[in-house]
Amino acid sequence: MKVSVLFFGATADEAGTREIEIDFADNAKAEEVFGEIVNKFPRLGNHKLLFAVNQEYAGGDETISDGDELAVFTAVSGG
């Protein structure tokens, strides 16, 4: 399955991109997919990261499906 992964702010700088598409085994758990993304961009490990699946915060137990929109970002700092 293919999923898109979005980066913002600090994570976009660390990954050197704002969006990638990755292939993953069907029905993978969110934590496996996010672990793979951090392996791919080790500098993300310098930050405390938050994850989202389809624009909702993800805890890691979610099952990822083809076409899902994932996001990796640092603790938010709006206001």
Partner: peptide
């Protein structure tokens, strides 16, 4: 609302 916005809404400042 401002406390929660700063905690939950995905906006970042550089």
């Amino acid at each position: 609302l401002i406390k929660e916005l700063k905690r939950t809404v995905p906006i970042w400042k550089k």
